[in-house]
């Protein structure tokens, strides 16, 4: 950990990462282990097929619900970015404002280190934490799938896990940018949380109303849902765009923190 802001931040996060990993792994295990029961439900596909178009649109391929990959896509991997965003925002918001709030900032920034390096190292640590939680879910799914005698193609599982990350990282970066502008973590977390909620509501309304179809380009969740990597192919363009926005937000946070006057 000697002098590594990245490792120091990651070590500080370890308790939270472990708890989140256990929590998400538990949810994953419950879903996979109960899947045989779901699969045996007679008339499930017919029931889902009778749902309103908007629900069907949210589910995607209804017939896939009786397969493990389709079921996990709907139940786990589709909402996964939202869960990971909660972790990313809660920690991303305190990365810089927390240093100010806890009065660590003078000791740290009086060192011969560029402020942007501090920002980048801290972001990468939280982004790593997000990835570890996602990997914990994927590992749990593998183990539990074997227990129920089913299995998922490795490539699909890896892609499904990776597909959840860019949007979570984007929201983490958004919280980080907020954190670089304020003196306390809470406003940064609220602002980023508000964007997540607004984005989720927009995406839900967009799927319910054909009149809002044109809003797709501004709906962040639409880009995450563009590909169905657990059951199909990822949308490289959409993933690339989410990553590009993340890079822009982290860069903005670096610039903001570099220029920031650290008056308490």
């Amino acid at each position: 950990m000697k002098g590594s802001i990245y490792l120091k931040t990651l070590v500080d996060l370890r308790g939270s990462v472990i708890m989140w990993s256990l929590g998400i792994a538990f949810i994953g295990a419950v879903n996979v282990l109960f899947f045989p029961t779901i699969q045996q439900m007679e008339g499930l596909v017919a029931f889902l097929d009778s749902m309103p178009p908007v629900i069907k649109a949210m589910i995607g391929d209804v017939s896939a619900m009786v397969r493990l990959d389709g079921f996990l896509h709907v139940k786990l991997f589709d909402p996964l970015p939202l869960l990971l965003a909660i972790f990313g925002i809660s920690h991303g918001a305190s990365l810089l404002a927390g240093e100010l709030e806890h009065k660590h900032v003078d000791l740290l920034l009086a060192r011969p280190v560029h402020r942007w390096r501090v920002v980048l190292a801290k972001f990468l640590a939280v982004a790593t934490g997000v990835a570890i939680i996602a990997v914990a879910l994927a590992a749990t799914v593998v183990v539990c799938a074997r227990i129920i005698g089913d299995e998922l193609p490795w490539s699909h599982l890896v892609l499904g896990t990776l597909n959840a990350l860019p949007l979570s990282w984007l929201f983490t970066a958004l919280a980080l940018l907020g954190s670089s502008l304020v003196t306390q973590p809470r406003p940064a977390a609220f602002a980023a949380g508000a964007v997540v909620v607004a984005g989720y509501v927009l995406e839900t309304l967009r799927m319910m109303s054909p009149a809002l179809a044109g809003w797709r380009t501004v709906s962040l969740f639409a880009y995450q849902k563009a590909g169905y990597p657990l059951v199909g192919a990822p949308d490289i363009g959409a993933v690339g765009l989410l990553l590009a926005v993340t890079v822009v937000l982290v860069t903005a946070a670096c610039v903001s923190w570099e220029r920031r006057d650290l008056a308490a």
Partner: peptide, 24 residues
């Protein structure tokens, strides 16, 4: 600094190691 707070979860040695090697 006149006003500061250390990272309370570390011991003194690790704290000094960390601060000592940030950028140097």
């Amino acid at each position: 600094p006149g006003e500061y707070r250390f990272y309370e979860n570390l011991d003194g040695r690790r704290m000094l190691e960390y601060l000592g090697h940030v950028g140097g």
